[in-house]
Amino acid sequence: MLRRILALGFACAAASSFGQLLTDIDPNWKEVDAPPPPAVRTQGLIPLETSASIALRFGVDPASVSVGADGVVRYVVVASSASGTVNAMYEGLRCNTAEVKVYARHNPDSGWVPVRGAEWQPLQDRPNSRHSLVVARTGACMGRGISGTASDIVRALRSPAEARFDRR
């Protein structure tokens, strides 16, 4: 009997979540103009644990994290190599659609360069940028919603995995 009650509860929750997901995706959604990328900082970054690259270390600049009026979480992620080369990307996440967009790339020679024709890409389809998925899963998104304010996201990114969504 208990198994049936639990199964029914899980089924109702899943159906409710799916219905909520469908209503959360607004067909009239419009992206606001992204603010220009901030200066690249290499100090005080929040490290990201990615298994995609042994040669690169990734970190998010906590001062760059913002949540736009359009529901996009924007941030700068810095990639540094063992040789000392530093590159950065100014990205946006849409938690409700599980998509990411790169607005600009920074390299030491040219500074910030806007990405021409940047499009929203599914998070799962970017094998060379697992860092975006890590940002989404470890701080920016909670399911298909934003984890809260920019400071909530920074706090979650800094927290140990087992304490990330403890709101006490």
Rank of each mutant, 00 (worst) to 15 (best):
His131Met: 14
Val135Trp: 03
Val100Lys: 09
Pro114His: 02
Thr97Leu: 05
Asn107Arg: 12
Cys95Lys: 02
Arg158Tyr: 04
Ser132Leu: 13
Leu123Ile: 11
Asp109Tyr: 11
Cys95Val: 02
Gly148Tyr: 00
Lys101Ile: 15
Val100Gln: 12
Ala69Asp: 15
Tyr90Val: 05
Leu93Lys: 00
Val100Met: 09
Ser83Phe: 01
Tyr75Met: 11
Tyr90Pro: 04
Ala79Trp: 02
Val154Met: 02
Gly148Cys: 03
Pro122Asp: 11
Gly148Ile: 03
Arg130Thr: 13
Tyr90Cys: 06
Gly139Ile: 01
Ser83Cys: 00
Gly143Asn: 08
Ala69Pro: 05
Glu99Ile: 07
Arg130Met: 13
Arg126Gln: 14
Leu133Arg: 13
Glu91Pro: 00
Leu133Val: 13
Asp70Met: 02
His131Ala: 15
Ile153Gln: 02
Ile146Gln: 07
Ser132Trp: 14
Pro127Ala: 03
Lys101Val: 15
Met142Gly: 00
Leu93Cys: 03
Cys141Met: 06
Asn96Phe: 10
Val113His: 08
Ser147Lys: 01
Gly148Trp: 05
Asn128Asp: 14
Ala104Glu: 00
Val73Ser: 09
Trp112His: 09
Cys141His: 08
Ser129Leu: 13
Val134Arg: 07
Arg155Lys: 14
Leu157Trp: 09
Pro160Thr: 14
Gly68Cys: 06
Val102Cys: 13
Ser110His: 12
Tyr75Cys: 06
Leu133Lys: 12
Ser147Phe: 04
Arg105Cys: 01
Gly145Met: 13
Trp112Ile: 04
Pro122His: 08
Ser129Trp: 09
Gly68Ser: 10
Ala82Thr: 10
Pro122Phe: 07
Ser110Met: 12
His106Ala: 08
Val78Glu: 08
Thr149Gln: 09
Thr149Asn: 05
Ala118Met: 04
Cys95Met: 01
Ala140Trp: 02
Ser129Glu: 12
Arg94Val: 08
Arg116Ile: 11
Glu99Trp: 02
Gly84Cys: 11
Ser132Met: 14
Leu157Thr: 08
Gln124Arg: 15
Val73His: 11
Ala98Phe: 12
Ser151Trp: 04
Asn96Met: 06
Ala88Phe: 11
Ser159Pro: 02
Ser81Leu: 07
Gly143Val: 02
Gly139Asp: 03
Ser132Tyr: 15
Leu157Pro: 03
Gly117Asp: 11
Arg158Ser: 15
Arg130Cys: 02
Ser110Ile: 10
Val78Ile: 08
Tyr75Glu: 08
Gly145Gln: 13
Ile153Asn: 03
Pro114Tyr: 01
Pro108Leu: 07
Leu93Phe: 07
Ser80Gln: 14
Ala88Leu: 10
Ala88Arg: 07
Asp70Gln: 05
Ala140His: 01
Met142Leu: 13
Arg155Asp: 09
Ala69Tyr: 01
Ala140Glu: 03
Cys141Arg: 06
Asp109Cys: 00
Met89Asp: 13
Arg137Val: 01
Gly92Arg: 06
